[in-house]
């Protein structure tokens, strides 16, 4: 019930729509830039080959090599994943990666005041004589999550449609299959971050502080992931990366169910930890 009411209010308030606009503009920009860069690269490679008198077969080979290289980078050189993703236009993959990177920030902007915005001005007090604090929290979380599921679908759909227009060889069946795959991957990924935002929002009375804290946490997670990957295998710091949600994003598109399940489970665990944390905080605090 809280879920439905909050959802209606969130949709009405228009913030989600504005953010969706911004986010799709951002995605479009990335799409254009990436598209432009790949085309330029392709053209340069072609030109070089033409100079050295190579034939068209060599050109396609070089292009294929480049494609494999990028794919290998994106799929962490996992053969099975590379194969599965080979049918998807490379542009889509790159844009997907980049938007995934910024999605947590988007989630934070969308939901930073879900709880703090009600605790600060105390409007929460009207709710807690009618519903448990846990129900209020869950309702807020679910409404944010639902909103996000819809928004992500819109964006993913737009990207795929764009890719389809550009590449005619992108078959319709593959498109739908991959769209579903990317969509579910994004949802699994983002639920943990929605929960994180709920937690940050529960920690503070002031929405602004919870937003800043949320961004700081995102940065810390990114840092832990990066440092964990960068240091040598003997260094104890390498375990840091396992504590960061973003570490598990690589396998979300994995074709093997087991790999996907491990990643998914990791995100579910993060979401659960954040949500329970939020409940613990809200349960104990004065409103």
């Amino acid at each position: 019930m809280i879920w439905a009411a909050e959802l209606r209010r969130a949709v009405r308030s228009g913030r989600a729509i504005v953010l969706l606009g911004l986010y799709s503009m951002f995605s479009a920009l990335v799409l254009l830039v990436v598209g432009f860069v790949t085309r330029e690269l392709q053209a340069q490679v072609n030109a070089k080959l033409a100079e050295s008198g190579g034939d068209s077969e060599m050109a396609t080979q070089a292009a294929e090599q480049m494609r494999q290289g990028v794919l290998g980078f994106l799929a962490s050189n996992d053969a099975a994943m590379m194969e599965a993703l080979a049918k998807v236009p490379i542009v889509v993959l790159i844009v997907f990666k980049i938007t995934l990177f910024f999605l947590p920030a988007y989630i934070a902007l969308m939901g930073f005041d879900q709880v703090s915005g009600e605790v600060g001005p105390r409007s929460m007090r009207y709710l807690t004589v009618r519903a448990r604090r846990s129900s209020v929290l869950l309702g807020k979380f679910l409404s944010q999550a639902t909103l996000l599921v819809g928004l992500v679908l819109v964006i993913d759909l737009a990207i795929f449609v764009y890719a389809r227009i550009l590449n005619d060889d992108f078959a319709f069946a593959t498109l739908v299959l991959n769209l579903l795959k990317f969509w579910s991957a994004t949802i699994v990924f983002s639920l943990a971050y929605v929960a994180l935002t709920t937690l940050c929002s529960s920690l503070f009375r002031s929405p602004a502080v919870s937003l800043v804290f949320n961004f700081i946490l995102l940065f810390v997670f990114w840092l832990m992931d990066s440092v964990g990957r960068a240091v040598s295998e003997e260094n104890l710091l390498r375990f840091l990366r396992f504590l960061s949600p973003s570490y598990y994003s690589a396998n979300l598109l994995h074709p093997k169910l087991a790999e996907f399940a491990v990643s998914g489970a990791a995100y579910a665990a993060f979401a659960a930890v954040f949500l329970f944390g939020a409940y613990g905080v809200l349960r104990a605090r004065d409103l």
Binding site: R12, E118, P121, R122, R125, Y126, V129
Partner: peptide
Amino acid sequence: PGALKGRVGALPQDAVLPPGWEVGALLMY
């Protein structure tokens, strides 16, 4: 948790009504 549901009606001092609602819809909710 939830113990006061249906037992207590409360007018808190200094609690702001949540914005973005029509009064009637809010009360019905």
